[in-house]
């Protein structure tokens, strides 16, 4: 009962309330309340994520697994940032209420939390994603092979887009008059045609397919047909 029936009922009820909220203004406020609870749980999920990080890294340190020193660094940076943020250490006082202890702003560069964001977190996360430029280049060299019609179409389109997105497009085909019968040979023209017609059509079909999948999955969950989530406990 507690392990199966109640969760199925909670899922069905929350789903149905939100569907009803859409169709009837009388139940809109119910839906809003459910959504507000959802948002609170989303914030709790951050705490859960941090808790998981702690558990994994503490276990790594206590069992002296390879790389435990890095786990220690992770934990030190975690607790430093957490302490600065939760306690609002060095926060800029709220101009309207300077006397209120925790009303200040903790995320400006003047506070330790904001400083770490600006000069540690931000460059680290930005550079981590910037690395993908290198991996894309390497993948292009190793994996993009014109083996059949499909791959030739893919590569040909990629070439057109890569050229048309830069000044190379205008340099190579910009001399063709825009109002001539051969304007379709201009790379910028081709790019617009590809993105606004072909790519849009392809993505539209994918979007419709995903929507059908979402509807089917949602219905299966709300109606209690799909109970796979019960095994997550």
């Amino acid at each position: 009962m507690l392990q199966r029936t109640v969760p199925i009922a909670i899922l069905g009820l929350s789903g149905v309330i939100l569907m009803l909220a859409y169709f009837s203004p009388l139940t809109t406020s119910w839906g809003e309340t459910v959504l507000e609870w959802f948002n609170i749980l989303a914030a709790v999920a951050f705490v859960l994520g941090a808790g998981n990080l702690l558990a994994v890294n503490l276990e790594k340190i206590s069992s002296r697994r390879p790389g435990w020193a890095y786990a220690a660094i992770t934990l030190v940076s975690f607790f430093l940032m957490l302490g600065f943020g939760l306690l609002k250490v060095g926060a800029v006082p709220n101009p309207a209420h300077p006397e209120v202890s925790f009303a200040g702003s903790y995320d400006t560069a003047e506070s330790p939390f904001g400083w770490i964001y600006e000069y540690v977190f931000s460059p680290l996360t930005a550079t981590m994603f910037a690395m993908l430029a290198f991996y894309v280049a390497s993948a292009a060299f190793r994996a993009f092979r014109a083996k059949n019609t499909e791959s030739i179409l893919l590569l040909g389109t990629a070439f057109v887009i890569l050229l048309a997105q830069t000044a190379a497009g205008m340099f190579l085909t910009g001399w063709i008059p825009e109002d001539s019968a051969f304007a379709f040979l201009r790379l910028d023209w081709m790019k617009v045609a590809i993105t606004e017609h072909i790519q849009t059509a392809g993505m539209r079909a994918i979007t419709i397919g995903i929507a059908l999948g979402v509807v089917a999955t949602s219905l299966r969950l709300i109606l209690g047909i799909d109970k796979s989530y019960l095994s997550k406990g």
Partner: peptide, 21 residues
């Protein structure tokens, strides 16, 4: 990398706490 993991987890938690909780 280790610093990034620790700092980002704390950042998200602190932000969730003060902005929503």
């Amino acid at each position: 990398e280790s610093i990034l993991i620790g700092v980002s987890a704390a950042y998200w938690m602190v932000n969730g706490f003060w902005s929503t909780l």
